[in-house]
Design a protein around this nucleic acid. Structure first.
Lengths: 132, 132
DNA sequence: CATGCCGTTTACGTAAACGTCAATATTCCG
DNA sequence: CGGAATATTGACGTTTACGTAAACGGCATG
C-alpha cells in the first residue's frame, strides 16, 4: 500500500486547485513521478505539500519555501555546509518566534476590542426599555 | 509634547520606505493630518502603523488589515453591528490560533532537521583523524 | 463511436504591494 | 539668499501567485 494520489485527489484533500499544485511543481517545490504524462503523488509528496501550505499560512513566499526545503533536504556532506544550515535554521527560528510574539500582541488587542464591545452591550441591557 | 513625526522619520523608525507609508494612505490604512501639503503623523498614526506591520508579518493582506481596522474602530452603535463584530473577532482569533499551531509544527520540524545535522557532526568528530 | 471526464501543456490575464523615475514644490541651513 | 535636502503627486514598471481559457490526448462507458 505505497499510497498513490492523483492531482485532483490531492487538490481535494487540501482544498486547493490542481492548477496550484502544478504551479508549485513549476516553481520547483514538488517533483512527483509520472506515469507517462500523468503525475503520480506519493506519501512524501503529500507531506511536502502539507509543509508548503503550512508555511504559506504563515505568510512565506514560495521562493522562500523552496529554498528552505532544498536546504533542509540537502545531505550537506561537508562540515561547513552543515554549520551553514544550522545558522539558517537559527534565523528561521528567530522569524517564527517574532511571529509568535506578533500573534500574542494581536490577540491581546483583539481581546481589548472585544471587551469594549461587551461592556457597551452590557451597559445597554442595564437601561430601562428605551425612555422615549 | 503631542509628538509629531515626518514621513521619513516614521519610515526610518520602522525600517520601511516613505513610498510604503504613502501607499498605505492611498489604500486607506492611514490618514495623517496635513500641514499644507506635508503629512504630519501623530502618535495614533504610529500605533496604527505598528499594528499594520505586525499584521503584515503574519501574512495578512492590506485589504484584510484595512477592513479589520475599520471594523474594530467603528463605534458600532447598533446592537446587531456589535454582535457582528464579535463574530468577526472570533473568526480572526481562529486564524491566529491556527497560525500558532502551524508555528509549533514548523518549529518541531526544524528541531528534527537540526538534530539530524548535529548527530552527523558528532559522529564525524568521533572518527579518528581521517584513515587515509 | 461519440461523448464525457480527467489530465496535460502553453499562454495570456490579474491583483497586490510596492519600486522607480520624473516633475514640481518647500524647507532648511550656512 | 541660494543651493541642498526633503516632500508631493502622478505614472509606469515589476514580482508573486495563481486564474482562466485554449487546444489536445487517453480512457471508459452507454
Amino acid at each position: 500500500m505505497t499510497s498513490r494520489y492523483t492531482i485532483s485527489g490531492l487538490a481535494e484533500q487540501f482544498d486547493i486547485t490542481a492548477r496550484t499544485i502544478r504551479f508549485y511543481e513549476d516553481e520547483g517545490l514538488l517533483a512527483p513521478e509520472r506515469d507517462g504524462t500523468r503525475r503520480i503523488y506519493r506519501e512524501r509528496d503529500r507531506v511536502r505539500l502539507r509543509l508548503i501550505l503550512r508555511a504559506k499560512r504563515l505568510g512565506f513566499s514560495l521562493a522562500e519555501i523552496r529554498e528552505t526545503l532544498e536546504l533542509y533536504d540537502s545531505e550537506s556532506g561537508e562540515d561547513a555546509q552543515s554549520r551553514y544550515v544550522l545558522r539558517v535554521i537559527d534565523k528561521h527560528r528567530a522569524v517564527l518566534l517574532q511571529q509568535q510574539e506578533d500573534i500574542r500582541q494581536v490577540l491581546e488587542d483583539m481581546a481589548q476590542v472585544e471587551q469594549r464591545i461587551l461592556d457597551k452591550i452590557a451597559s445597554r441591557e442595564q437601561l430601562p426599555p428605551n425612555p422615549n
